[in-house]
Design a protein around this nucleic acid. Sequence first.
DNA 1: CCGGCCGTACTTACAGTGTATGTTTCAACG
DNA 2: CGTTGAAACATACACTGTAAGTACGGCCGG
Lengths: 216, 216
Amino acid sequence: MPASRRPSLSPERILRAAIKLADRQGLDALSMRKLATTLKVEAMSLYNHVASKDELLDGMVDQIIGEITLPERGGDWKAAMRTRAFSALAVMTAHPWAPMLVVSRINVGPNMLRYIDATLGTLREAGLSWEETDRAWNTMDNYIYGFTLQQQNFPVNPDDYASAAASYLSMLPADRYPYMHEMTARVADGSHDGTLDFGFGLEVILDGLERLRKHR
Amino acid sequence: MPASRRPSLSPERILRAAIKLADRQGLDALSMRKLATTLKVEAMSLYNHVASKDELLDGMVDQIIGEITLPERGGDWKAAMRTRAFSALAVMTAHPWAPMLVVSRINVGPNMLRYIDATLGTLREAGLSWEETDRAWNTMDNYIYGFTLQQQNFPVNPDDYASAAASYLSMLPADRYPYMHEMTARVADGSHDGTLDFGFGLEVILDGLERLRKHR
DNA sequence: CCGGCCGTACTTACAGTGTATGTTTCAACG
DNA sequence: CGTTGAAACATACACTGTAAGTACGGCCGG
């Protein structure tokens, strides 16, 4: 492989640039033209290396799925699932465009397959039946994707949430929406930290699964 | 030209047409021009009644959220949450474009607020603290939205799943993806019905929440 | 009865999208 | 050398949301 070939582009370089662009400017800003300009190239040149924008998006998803640390085998399955889930959360937080893409398309890239296989393996080795393994995996992942999506358009950053809640109060008349009103009021006055809590739901699910496992 | 000229359009008529179009042709097919055509009108005429496409999408979401049956107050909170969740599932299934819109934007329409308020109320009256109520609601809804999104692009309809699984097997070499391979093989030979199961995860979550409630 | 008003619908136009198609360029090989 | 073939470029098409300007027709004050 000679060093000074002409091609300045490659699928990998395009993929990296696409992820960087989406990280910085959001998924909406990721157009073939904008992506091309960041690579100092014309839009159509990209098509010599990627078949379509959809294929590019698939590649982006598989790439970042590869960043998730796989669950450890052979130890405590709950700890393994916890690690996996928080790692997924971290990756999705670092790439806010990712959850939307993950849930809006079918992904069968090698990293995705490896990720799923490791998860199934951990659950199966923990003693769940095939059916339970399938259901348990789906339950956890539905929650993870649901949470990361919700987090992605959480109105403000956590520090500003109390003051933001105060401004929402006027939209929530206490007579029509009593519970939302009080909840928001409590966030505003600081007696309830309305910030999203990934761990709560995760522990609820893990506990539920453990009971199911022991109960057989 | 027919006589009853003037107000051939109205926000409600546009909203209904938009929902019908999205139901039949998918969200991608919902463009202002196509929508206008179904109403026998030009695209720009719609803007006399809706401010923007985004506003229209918000309206669509709030409309179908209104179709969800609210949780009953005063009875068994688990039963109420179950009913609510399955009703939400049914609505999202009837309008496959909905979950994507719900999670990709902030929604504060009247139906959405009523829906959330009723949910918070039920949980609060069941004895959860404000903090627990907030967390519990989020946990359930993250799961619901995650599930309905996953269901939306489930590869095939349940009847064909076994035969489809057989054709996937070749993409899942047993040495690299042993657990996915076996899971898929079991779906193919009928010893595991790989169909998605909404109830499983829901019960896991409800059980987890109940334990939390009793434990205080 | 008539003239003006004003909301509704229409027309045109613009900047942007993904990508099909055709042309140019240039390093590497026979 | 000249030839080849891939990579980059240029043009074009059918779409998108929507800003801006125009034409129409039913209502109300004179």
